[in-house]
Design a protein around this nucleic acid. Sequence first.
DNA 1: GTTCGTGCAAACGATTTGCATTACT
DNA 2: AGTAATGCAAATCGTTTGCACGAAC
Lengths: 136, 136
Amino acid sequence: MNLINVLKKSGYRVTTSREIICRILEEAGHEHFTADSLFKLARKHSNEIDLATIYRTFELLEELGIIEHSHQAHSSGIYYLKGNKTNTHIACEKCGDIEDISSKTISKVNELISKDTNYEIEKNHFVYSGFCKKCK
Amino acid sequence: MNLINVLKKSGYRVTTSREIICRILEEAGHEHFTADSLFKLARKHSNEIDLATIYRTFELLEELGIIEHSHQAHSSGIYYLKGNKTNTHIACEKCGDIEDISSKTISKVNELISKDTNYEIEKNHFVYSGFCKKCK
DNA sequence: GTTCGTGCAAACGATTTGCATTACT
DNA sequence: AGTAATGCAAATCGTTTGCACGAAC
């Protein structure tokens, strides 16, 4: 399903900036973007586009339920399509690589924590960190 | 064991600011401080003390292995004595209350994630978030 | 022709840093 | 006296916002 069509159907205008951002998200070779990494890619298609527009478009796409974001401990947020895959990630403290954590694992994790603390966890808003195979 | 003595023994100078900060940490009614919350408390003892000093002292105490810090998703870092208790926390998204997560739970959690991803986790640098009993 | 979305620049909150002065030792 | 530590102000990083102009409808 085409992101631009979702925007159109929801009554939002189709602009050059939004087209570029949506195309990049859809063609995503790598799945996770910081605002800045997507900005740099977008600049290759247009040197008019602004970082603020990336943030505003992320916000819009998040409201529409298309993307999500999480926070890294000493670094910037990551944004990614909210697909069928998991929405919790782990980043390597050394090389910065980001991997998915399976949703089964996350359910177990959140259940463990809920049991222990009596808190109800809806979603993990952060990125785990550790050392990947290569770096550990 | 007295924090000021640790500083002294490690060759660091004992200053008014450090005394105030250490006393607050030791007397901690609540266990978790943001730089700013400790700053506000410190200001009650001296209106000379500066936020930068809080950060610098936190950094020093962390190097000495006395305190640790973690990051909250949409908020500031929390600093706490690295005692016998757990070093991973959960914050309520509504009221902001922070609870400890037991170290047994965290070991299990980290093991689950390590198995799933092949990443090695040393420490969780973030604060979980969810809704506490009252707020959920 | 309206209104929405943009680029730009400035404001933001949390944290860090440069620097000249102060105060431990 | 010598130097580490401070307060202050300015800088930084990631992100957000105000605003006047331009583009989508």
